[in-house]
Design a protein around this nucleic acid. Structure first.
Length: 112
DNA sequence: CGAATGACCAAGC
DNA sequence: GGCTTGGCCATTC
């Protein structure tokens, strides 16, 4: 098995990640947020990728399944957890269109 | 400090 | 609608 380079949480990188987790925990059930949205809320309007990296090591207490990309799609690969995320969202009442996308105008958290 | 990485984003074709 | 390219950023080694 391939070993990932130090999981985020196994290190003392709690500054940025912790804020990401704290924010994601605030996402109400049945709503979703985008990586970019989180990044901006944290004051790093371009760190969307970093947010994704943070989610990768997100604790079980974090509703990571409510985080999708700017297009309203699940960013995970089918082999990484796509199915699980989609199932969880569906269980919360989030709908997916034919292309497997979510209507951010409708389910987006604090949609602007 | 430099190079590599990643669950991203916007723009182009 | 789908694929490619370049750019951004924090973290890691």
């Amino acid at each position: 098995m391939k070993r990932i380079r130090a999981s985020p949480r196994s290190s003392a990188s709690q500054s940025f990640f912790s804020r990401v987790y704290a924010l994601v925990r605030q996402v109400p059930r049945g709503r979703v947020v985008t990586y970019g949205q989180i990044a901006r809320a944290l004051g790093a309007p371009g760190a969307a990728r970093t947010v994704g990296w943070a989610m990768r090591g997100s604790p079980a207490s974090v509703p990571w399944h409510r985080v999708v990309n700017a297009r309203g799609e699940i960013s995970l690969r089918p082999t990484t957890g796509y199915h699980e995320q989609r199932a969880r969202l569906k269980a919360e009442g989030v709908r997916f269109d034919r292309a497997g996308k979510i209507d951010l105008e409708k389910y987006g958290w604090k949609r602007v």
